[in-house]
Write a protein that binds this DNA or RNA. Structure first.
Lengths: 242, 242
DNA sequence: AAAGTCTAGTTGTCTATACAACCCTAGTCA
DNA sequence: TGACTAGGGTTGTATAGACAACTAGACTTT
């Protein structure tokens, strides 16, 4: 007894119908946050499908954060506070090109140096160990848009210093060398340092949007970056659905 | 033949073992991006589990963006460039309490007024239609942390003006009234307005982190908020995995 | 040479059944 | 009163089998 689409070709599979029904009712406010939703058995009866099908629908809704499930108790409409957003980390080069603008980069620093004590704990290597350090300013149509101050773990990218960063961005290169497996970031507003202000053509008190990001692969640090943007020209945008 | 944990209690279920194996090998670089990974049949043979179990493992990895699957072709290691981040939107009250600090709010404005032409396109209602407007300053241990300037659609929250916002935050209230189903946000660094600077106890040129957020339910606008934070005290943090 | 046909291999989905794990309540017993 | 037990309801997971849909390459036919 294995019947489903078969007919019109673009028919929606049963597990999808169950999901769509539940999301629809949730949107219509049938169950407010925390309310008990129908049990698997009830949905089985309502849709005349097997329990595994209903289970798949509910399991996926749970994975998407739309419902909460408690074994032995039931399924509940989720509290939607802690919703995850789609803040896509895109390569700056792609981002600028996507706007139809011209991107170029100026390399101000590119060398191996001992890791400073200030950055050692943030980066995850011991102070004094040799790391690669680049300082690059990215321009959009000639206007400085980002100062990229970056520390790289030589063990993860031994050829980092040989790359021509006017042609390929560090982000692009590092993604190709080491698979990105985890990252932490922080976003803050602050005044730029004296050097950053000079590189961006700003006054010392002009507000900047600063993103710091640490990337690691298999809990080994790959890179730590401080990205400084002039507040007047840069906005991080995103959207989320539950 | 339905056996699994049963023994030690904390045993990992088979579908998890398959997932962990694949993620582990992926981390070790066994398959580079785009490479063909083992088929379901091969994993069935290797782990001696049913195909549904392997299928679930692969389906979840696909949902998590770790592998790509093509019907009729196979499973491939995903390109990990376009990784999405988890930017958690938490209620400010919860956030402050979670730090073990005291939160209080001062309501500076709370009234119905016609929607200004400047905000009309951003909000999605026509200019001049009546909306609710609140201006609240949130403090952490007495220090001003956020100016919350908010427009609310009366159709979605008719009793909004009756709420005591020193006891419950607008975010909390709105989430309880209308389920949050979609939102767009923008993060930028900028100088505060004169009034915002006064409310936060800042100078006009002190950098602020400004989040603007528009929330809608079923494509009907619920609320538009401008959240201004002193750059010196506020950081948005997050992390992401592929 | 081009077009159509077949086939093996792959993923997509559903079913019926089974047992485990867990939660809560009601009842039992000391 | 308090501790224990039993049972009904719920979710969590696994299985074996089945058919559908799709892909790519091999093969046949025109």
């Amino acid at each position: 007894m294995a019947n489903f689409p078969s007919n019109g070709s673009n028919a929606v599979p049963p597990y999808r119908r169950v999901k769509d029904y539940l999301v629809g009712e949730l949107e219509r406010g049938r169950w407010t946050a925390g309310a008990l939703m129908p049990s698997e058995a009830e949905l089985v009866a309502q849709f005349e499908v097997s329990r595994m099908t209903v289970n798949r629908a509910l399991r996926e809704l749970h994975a998407e954060g739309i419902v909460d499930r408690v074994q032995g108790l039931g399924t509940f409409a989720a509290q939607l506070h802690r919703v995850s957003a789609g803040l896509t980390i895109r390569d700056l080069h792609d981002e600028i090109e996507a706007r139809g603008h011209h991107h170029d980069a100026v390399v101000h620093l590119k060398r191996a140096e001992p890791l400073s004590a200030a950055l050692a704990p943030k980066f995850g290597l011991s102070a004094g160990s040799e790391v690669f350090h680049t300082l690059i300013v990215h321009h959009e149509n000639g206007v400085p848009l980002q100062v990229e101050d970056r520390i790289v773990n030589p063990a993860q990218a031994p050829d980092y210093l040989k790359v021509d960063f006017t042609r390929i961005t560090p982000t692009q290169y590092l993604l190709s060398v080491a698979p990105l497996w985890q990252a932490q970031y922080a976003i803050e507003a602050s005044a730029p340092s004296a050097r950053e202000a000079r590189l961006l053509g700003l006054a010392r008190h002009d507000p900047c949007l600063i993103v710091t990001r640490r990337t690691e692969s298999r809990s080994v640090p790959i890179t730590y970056a401080r990205l400084v943007h002039p507040g007047a020209h840069y906005v991080i945008e995103g959207q989320f659905k539950p």
